[in-house]
Each structure stands twice: as C-alpha cells, then as structure tokens.
Design a protein around this nucleic acid. Structure first.
Lengths: 206, 206
DNA sequence: TTGTAATTTAATTTA
DNA sequence: TAAATTAAATTACT
C-alpha cells in the first residue's frame, strides 16, 4: 500500500527553486506560470516546495514503533500506532459535494489536483511514526523548570541524571529543554514588542 | 515520586557544556548562570520552593490586547491556577460574565480611551486573555473548505494568499487548517471505530 | 450542548 | 542547535 505513492510523477514545472516561495510572496497575486522556462512549480504554489520525499531513506530510531512494525492495519487499542488506511475527502468523489461550489468562489487551478496524493502520503509518513505525546507530571515539570532557571543548556550528564531521577528518557529531557528555550525566547521577543508598542501608545496619550 | 528526603547523587547543573556559553549569550534576558563555577545541584533545587518570582512574566503574542492588559501580572507556568487580575469597567462587558470576578478591578483610565473598543471583546475568564473568537463568513469557510479538499497543508505562500483574498490574518488561516485537519482526523477515527464495531456486531449475528 | 476557534506544548523536520 | 511546523490535548466561546 505504501508502494503506491512511490510512483508519483514529478509535478514540478521546473526544478525546485528554494527562492520560489520568496518571489511568490512578492508577486502575491496571480502566480500563473510564466512563459519562460523557469516558472513556479506546482509544489511551490501549493506550499509543498520544501518538502522532500516524505518517507525518508534513513529510518529513525523509533522504539515505540516496534509493536506495530508488522501490522498492516493499525491496532485499535492504540490509536497512536495506527496506520491510517483512509480515504480523505476527495473533491472528485465527494458525496454531497456540490460541483458548482468549486468554480464559484475561487479560481482553484492553482490550488488544484496533483497534490492530493502528496498530502496523503505526507500524512501517512507523519502518522506512521510519531511518538505518543508524553504527559509530564506536575512534579516532573516542576523539577525541569527549576533546573531550567539555573541552566537552560544542561549537558548530557545532567540530562541523563534528570532522566534517571525523573524516570524519563534522556531524549524527552532534551526535547523539553529545546521547547522550553523556544518558549522563553518567544516570550522575550513578544514582551519586547509589547513594551515598544505600549510606550508608543502611551506617548500618544500624553 | 521524588520524596523530600530521597538522596540523590550530587550533580552540578553547570557542568561544562561547550556551546552553552555561546548560546546563553544569544538568549538575552536569561543570562544568569554559567559565570563562575556554580555549585547548584538538583537536590538543592528540588528541596526548596525558595523562589517566588524567578521566571520573568511570560507574555504571549497577543496584539489584540492593549496596554491595559499588559500591566497585569501573571505567571504562565501554571495556567490552570491563574486568576483573573484585570477587569474593565465597561458594564456591557459583564453582561454574561461571571460577577464574582468583578471585585478585582483594575483602572486604566489613561489607556481607556484607546482601548475601549477592544475591551468589549476581551474576556477575562480565569484565564488571561484570549483572542476574540473569529467568526468566519460563509464565503470564507467555503473557500477554505475548497482549498482544504485539495491541499490540507498549505504552505506560507498559499496561506498569505488566502489571507489576502479573504481579508483575514495569515494566523487565522493557519489555525483554521490545523483545526480542520484535527477535525478530519477525528471523524476518520470515529468512522473507523464504527466500521470495526459494525463488523464485530454483524459477526455476532451470523 | 455542539461545533469550533484559540491555546499550549510535545514531537518532528530542516538547515 | 534554532526555527518553523505539526499533532495532540485542552479550553472556552457562540
């Protein structure tokens, strides 16, 4: 079943261009393919330009996937391990879909077709192996937060130590600190933005 | 899980991390540790609840909020325990609100004129501030649904394009697609469940 | 009450 | 590792 997607024909109108998305935004209206040889690929138009083959050649280490490696269908008892054998909504086969809708509102050409299998495949690859979301206990969070206050870049030894003490994988610790740093940075950026905005606003009121 | 008296191996939280000093410099606003050899241990952190205000007030990006709200203090680290600290004097605001919260009133006369219009939509539930719920028009929904059928993972270009065409923020577009994908997945899960259930029931009837 | 917009955060990908 | 993005889970508004 997975092999089906492998035969996906290349839809690029030209070689993938990393700067295409930038240009596209400036053009910002119609992105009809140019008549010259280099135009925007459908992928770039549909926002998929940067996505490589969704099924990576290099298999990551996913111990939590072992249970369902040989399953064709997902195990219902564990939705996280399910491989969706789905028929996502298909505009061509929509039961109650009104074909009139499509032409009415938006010119769909540039959004149209071609990518359906792509996104399907993409979802497949995502659902295939995504670690079940870890739910940290309050105590774990508390410890992690306290450590974070002192050292937001714990080395491997500290992470291992925390992992052992909190009964978590070291990977979880690492990811947690990554996300925590991102959160801190974001909040800092935003508070700065608000400060500037507020001082500006209050200066207007004086 | 980590009892008070539990003995743990002493681990320096500031163990040498080659990239830590560099990265710490980047994260301006949180440059506390990593100066001299510090002797914080996990134990020292776990035992005490010494710090009351260590984490800088985390502010999220909420442009729809005005200066008034930004005066409010709060701790994001535990959103569930947050209490409403800000209230506005507009009686209309409390029309269907919780009267219990009215005691805590924060006066912001200085900013009131500017923010009056926005205050209407600001909800001060026991949470801090939430973007006023966007009410998409039928046409907007229709367009979004049509695009979704074709590409449920629109990239930034399409999102911007849609935002411009539908007169919405790009953020709204992104959130809409996220929620739409979640909805699709949910419905798919449910239909699969029904299929399994039905086949099971019919197998019982044979 | 239901549907869904909004929020938070763990996990993933890319570079 | 940051940055962007995703799914998951939840909150809360209409």
């Amino acid at each position: 079943m997975l092999a089906e997607g492998e035969s996906m024909a290349s839809t690029s109108l030209c070689a993938a261009n990393p700067s295409a998305s930038q240009n596209l935004r400036k053009v910002s209206g119609f992105v009809e393919s140019k008549t010259t040889q280099c135009s925007f690929s459908i992928e770039s138009i549909l926002g998929l330009e940067q996505k490589k083959d969704p099924i990576p050649a290099v298999k990551h280490h996913r111990p939590w996937m072992d249970a369902c490696t040989n399953l064709v269908l997902g195990d219902d008892s564990n939705p996280h391990l399910q491989i969706p054998v789905v028929c996502y909504e298909n505009p061509l086969f929509h039961a109650n879909g009104n074909p009139v809708q499509e032409e009415k509102v938006l010119k769909c050409e540039k959004y149209f077709a071609v990518t359906e299998r792509l996104s399907f495949k993409r979802e497949l690859s995502w659902y295939r192996g995504r670690r079940p979301r870890t739910a940290f206990t309050r105590n774990q969070i508390e410890v992690l937060e306290n450590v974070f206050k002192i050292n937001s870049y714990p080395g491997i030894d500290i992470r291992e130590d925390l992992a052992h003490k909190l009964d978590l994988d070291e990977d979880r610790i690492q990811i947690w600190f990554q996300n925590r740093r991102a959160k801190l940075k974001r909040s800092h950026r935003e508070s700065q933005f608000l400060m500037v905005k507020n001082s500006f606003t209050s200066s207007l009121l004086e």
